[in-house]
Design a protein around this nucleic acid. Structure first.
Length: 383
DNA sequence: TCTGGGGTCCTAGGACCC
DNA sequence: TCTGGGGTCCTAGGACCC
C-alpha cells in the first residue's frame, strides 16, 4: 500500500486556520521570487499549481491567501499520520514528509471487503487528523505508488498484475515515476508517448536514453518491481542550505554574509543530528540559471561552524565567479555519525592533522618513485 | 516581477594504487 | 617499438522527487 497526503501543506494550514477553509490558498514565501509550494484544491481551480511563481498565482486569483511554510507544524502532523498508519501494519517505509509504503499482506489476509476496509483507513485518518489521503494497493511498490496517484483527493485504487496493460500502459509517459521533464521529451522523440510504448520501442535507443534506469524501468512496468517495504530509516548523506537573493548580486560582502549565515545553519543542523562530514560543497546559480559547484574533501570529518565556514569561504573564492549570482548554497557531505569519531577537533588540531596527511602523501609518492627507479635500474642492468 | 529549497542517485573523467 | 587492467576516491554536472 502507498499512502499519499493530498495537498498536505495547504491542508495543514487550514487545520490550524479554519477560517481559511474553502478559500483558494497556497503555501509559499511571499517575496519577489517566491513560488507556490502547495496549492489547495480551491486554488487549483484557477490553474494554480506547485512551482508557479507567487506573483503569477496572484494574477490568476487576486483574492489568493498566501501562507508561509511552517515546517514544525507539517512535521507534527506528518508524525501523527505515520503513527496512525502504523496501527494497521508496523511494516512501514517513510518515503517523504507526506507519503509512505506499508506492507499490508498480513493485515489484509482475512479481510473480505478490501475496498471497504481501505475506506475505513482513509476516513479514520480524516476523523482523527482532518488530513486527506489517497491510497494505492498493488503487488509492488512502484505500482502502488502509481495507483495512489490516480485518484485525488481521497482516492482508492487497486492494481493487480493482470491490470497493468489496461491501467498503466495507456498513461502518458510524463506520469511515470522517475521520468521527468528532461527525459520525457527525449522519449517522445523516439515515439514513446505512453508508458506501454516503452515495451515496443527500439530497446537500443531506449537503453541509451535511460542508462541503468532502463532495467529498473522494465522491471517496474512488467510487475517485477520491488515489494520490499524497508522499515529501517537510512542515515542522511548530506546536510545543506541554500538561499536565493532578492536580487542577483556580485557584491562580495553581501555574498559573504549570506555564506556565513548558511554555514551557521548547516553547522547547527549537523550538530543537532550528531553528524560529521568530510566534504564541503559550495553551489552557485548564476542569473542564467546555470548551476556551478565546487567541492573539497578533507581527510578527517568535521562539523564545527569554524571549519565549515573556513572551507566554504576558501572554496567559494576558488570558484572565480565574476557575474552576478542568483543563489548560493553550502552542503556538508560524506556524513558519518559523530560517535564514530570521539572528539571534536579544534581548527588548530585539524591543521596539524592535515599537514601530517600531506606529508604522508609526499612520502608515499617518494617511495613510489624510488621503487620505480630501482625497477628501472634493474631492467637496465638486465639489458 | 519570472522560475524555492530540501534531498538522492547516476554518469563520466581523472588521479592514484597495486 | 610505445603503453594493461583491476580497483577506489574525488570532482563536476545533471536528472529527478517532494
Amino acid at each position: 500500500m502507498h499512502i499519499d497526503l493530498n495537498a498536505f501543506f495547504a491542508t495543514a494550514e487550514t487545520i490550524i486556520h479554519p477560517e481559511y477553509k474553502g478559500h483558494p490558498l497556497v503555501v509559499g514565501r511571499e517575496g519577489r521570487r517566491g513560488i507556490v509550494s502547495t496549492a489547495n484544491y480551491e486554488a487549483r481551480k484557477f490553474g494554480i499549481h506547485s512551482a508557479m511563481p507567487i506573483y503569477m498565482a496572484k494574477e490568476l486569483c487576486p483574492s489568493l491567501i498566501v501562507v508561509p511554510c511552517n515546517f514544525a507544524l507539517y512535521e507534527r502532523l506528518s508524525n501523527e499520520f505515520f503513527n496512525y498508519v502504523s496501527s494497521y501494519s508496523p511494516i512501514i517505509q517513510i518515503a517523504s514528509i507526506d507519503e509512505c509504503y506499508v506492507d499490508m499482506t498480513e493485515t489484509l489476509k482475512n479481510i473480505k471487503d478490501i475496498d471497504n476496509y481501505l475506506h475505513k483507513i482513509q476516513d479514520g485518518l480524516f476523523e482523527k487528523t482532518k488530513l486527506q489521503c489517497s491510497i494505492g494497493i498493488a503487488p509492488t511498490k512502484f505500482l502502488a505508488k502509481m495507483a495512489s496517484d490516480m485518484k485525488k483527493p481521497m482516492g482508492i485504487t487497486i492494481i493487480r498484475r493482470k491490470d497493468i496493460p489496461k491501467m498503466i500502459y495507456p498513461l502518458p509517459i510524463e506520469s511515470m515515476f522517475g521520468i521527468g521533464k528532461k527525459t520525457a521529451p527525449r522519449l517522445r522523440n523516439i515515439g514513446i508517448n505512453k508508458i506501454g510504448d516503452l515495451k515496443t520501442a527500439n530497446q537500443i535507443e531506449l537503453k541509451h536514453i535511460l542508462g541503468k534506469f532502463y532495467f529498473t524501468c522494465m522491471d517496474w512496468i512488467e510487475g517485477r518491481g520491488s515489494d520490499v517495504v524497508e522499515v529501517e530509516e537510512t542515515d542522511p548523506k548530506s546536510i545543506g542550505n541554500s538561499r536565493t537573493f532578492e536580487n542577483n548580486t556580485n557584491n562580495y560582502e553581501e555574498i559573504k554574509s549570506m555564506l556565513t549565515y548558511l554555514c551557521k545553519l548547516v553547522a547547527k543542523r549537523a550538530n543537532e543530528e550528531e553528524k560529521v562530514g568530510t566534504t564541503i560543497q559550495v553551489t552557485i546559480k548564476t542569473s542564467d540559471f546555470k548551476v556551478h559547484s565546487k567541492s573539497v574533501t578533507k581527510p578527517k570529518a568535521f562539523n564545527s561552524y569554524e571549519m565549515i565556514h573556513e572551507i566554504a569561504l576558501q572554496t567559494f573564492e576558488r570558484m572565480n565567479i565574476n557575474e552576478p549570482i542568483r543563489l548560493i548554497g553550502v552542503t556538508l557531505q560524506n556524513l558519518e555519525s559523530r560517535h564514530d569519531q570521539k572528539l571534536q577537533m579544534s581548527l588548530f588540531d585539524y591543521q596539524i592533522h592535515e599537514e601530517e596527511a600531506k606529508t604522508k602523501l609526499i612520502i608515499n609518492d617518494l617511495n613510489r618513485k624510488m621503487k620505480k627507479n630501482v625497477f628501472k635500474r634493474a631492467s637496465e642492468a638486465k639489458r
